[in-house]
Design a protein around this nucleic acid. Structure first.
Lengths: 348, 348
DNA sequence: CGCCCTGTAGAAAGCGCTTACTATCCCCCT
DNA sequence: AGGGGGATAGTAAGCGCTTTCTACAGGGCG
């Protein structure tokens, strides 16, 4: 059978309490004794019984990271950075950080939250935009409140703030502002017929980015609600939506996309229609994923610091970093002007 | 405070044992009693204490899924499918399946294994190729043996079989065979100067695919070890390696890549050099990721059933599906001939 | 010279659940 | 009518830790 604390204690000729104290490093133990205990641990190949430990201490070593779509690098990068940050923190007892993929399903989101609650997780990180559905938002809010009650730290990363005080810290992306600056840039290049490929309408991210876009249009005195097409956050969707935009407005000179993946789909559609980027039509994305700078032409986009945000979320979840004042930090994007946007063509 | 089993029992006017039995559904309980218990659970918003349960029952609800690089869709798809399959199985008590990203680091791999061992995980799924390093392989083998001893189910998905009997089931991709057929196809199109962009030398996947490629060359009486360049599994790497191949053999007419992402990088490099795919140079990939069929031209590749394999791994981890005879199932890839490969150009 | 304080270690009481084992109850069969 | 047995439910003994409280030793101080 697997060795237990008592076995280690017997071998090291100390009491179980002492072994526990050595392992947790939260109580003074004489150097010689510690030495002896560690040797016994090693010799028996002892691994702490997590459930027993969690039961007794009423907290666990689990940190859950919820993502909407693990196949999307947007989430992969944030989650990976959070996990790396948590793994780097080699305290007496390393936390086990784990990624849970909801696939964008509200039910799965709640199920994972419940499952993490059952495991008495030490912390939960929610990444990416929330769903607009108020009923679901309320359910999540209630769940988070119960988690917080039980001592679980809650961190939102790239997600809009939640009312109530159950959230430990929120890192909110400034989607509106970034989007505003992006479209301002496009307008500044002289474009007037600007199509927008939006994300799925049920996500907050979609709305915020769209609002930023619209505010830029409004500031320039442009009104063109007809040039917005909704889709999902994938390439195919960007491709299809762009064809639709072209149908609605053949004289289009710019396409602003909800994210980089969609923007790449837009580029493909334009190319297939015989249009040059940016010669005929400029294209802009959002997020700045790794491939965006490598694309041909390199994509103009708004860089969101995903790694940094993920890592910070990880540290916040561990309580290694104080929460920002008010519990909320707004993370701003940086406009990256690259080759995919250019001045409007003559007569455009 | 959070409600406990005893609270529920008191409210439902039954003993704690009965509540436990209702919750676990592994013992007959009269319908009326069950009803009463469930109502109490609901009213108190009771959530089982996982650690306590795991301690008493000596098994936990955790299933760990280890991946090398979560940002790579190859892993994202397998892990996502496994997680979905596990989430679908709504037994009395749903398992919590979680993804752990090792980032390809041997230390992280072992650390996660230890952490999962500490949590007394019910199962562990290891995805993707293993490291060639025999020392590390031995360490992993030993770790898995201890996990298996403790009752943890071990499933390998897309990973070569491991000696010893600690592994519950292995789903091994036929990388050699698939690769062989792919290069056979390219040779069949008349190509003779064929470059190969291999993956990182330290992974078994790389070696197996390369072996398949070489066996096809050998069968055709071709010897060209000089036309193999190693890199990592990303786009950039495919781009750089292709330029290198072109330097070594300007008369190249085909490039076979270790995977689709790399193949796309190869296409970009060729395009930047003014070469047409497949007009001047044919390109082939491996795996068949979602974007591969959409690419222009659509990528010829070997389709690995990632979703199916991931889902099956999930079911095997739960013990819902009997292990294949001998514990090992070879999963074959299907050659997908698409637009990126064509007959060799005249005089090529 | 006795006392208290500091540093170190042990004893033991749970943490909240699961699960033998035991106890009823009631129905049916002989 | 008595006994056997199936269907339910309760009792209580842990599971392997953590942690409070207690114990003891040694040393500085009054």
């Amino acid at each position: 059978m697997t060795a237990t604390l008592a076995d280690v204690a017997a071998r090291a000729q100390v009491s179980p309490a002492t072994v526990s104290r050595v392992l947790n490093g939260n109580y003074p133990v004489a150097a010689a004794t510690r030495e002896r205990v560690l040797r016994a641990v090693d010799e028996l190949d002892y691994v702490l019984n997590g459930p027993a430990s969690s039961l007794a201490a009423a907290t666990s070593d689990l940190v859950g990271i919820l993502v909407n779509d693990i196949a999307d690098p947007f989430f992969g990068i944030m989650a990976g950075a959070a996990q790396a940050a948590i793994g780097e923190e080699r305290g007496a007892r390393e936390k086990l950080s784990v990624i849970c993929n909801t696939g964008g399903s509200p039910e799965r989101e709640l199920t994972y939250l419940t499952l993490l609650q059952r495991q008495r997780a030490a912390a939960v990180i929610l990444t990416g935009g929330a769903l607009e559905d108020p009923e679901h938002a309320a359910a999540v809010g209630a769940k988070l409140a119960r988690l917080a009650d039980a001592g679980t730290r809650i961190v939102l990363c790239g997600r809009p703030p939640l009312p109530g005080d159950s959230v430990t810290a929120t890192l909110a992306f400034d989607n509106r502002g970034g989007s505003r600056r992006l479209t301002d840039h496009v307008i500044g290049l002289g474009h007037r017929r600007i199509g927008y490929v939006a994300g799925p309408p049920e996500r907050t991210t979609t709305r915020h980015r769209l609002e930023g876009h619209r505010s830029a249009l409004a500031a320039a005195g442009l009104r063109q609600d007809g040039l917005v097409v909704h889709g999902s956050y994938d390439r195919r969707s960007g491709y299809d939506a762009t064809l639709e935009l072209l149908r609605r407005e053949p004289e289009l000179t710019a396409v602003v996309a909800a994210n980089d993946t969609v923007a790449l789909g837009a580029c493909a559609a334009l190319r297939d229609r015989g249009l040059c980027v940016p010669g005929d039509v400029s294209v802009a994305g959002f997020v700045d994923l790794p491939f965006s700078a490598d694309a041909v032409p390199a994509l103009t986009t708004v860089r969101l610091p995903l790694s940094e945000a993920g890592a910070r979320a990880g540290r916040l979840a561990l309580g290694l970093e104080p929460a920002p004042p008010g519990g909320i930090a707004t993370v701003h994007g940086e406009l990256m002007v690259r080759g995919s946007t250019g001045a409007v063509r003559a007569g455009g």
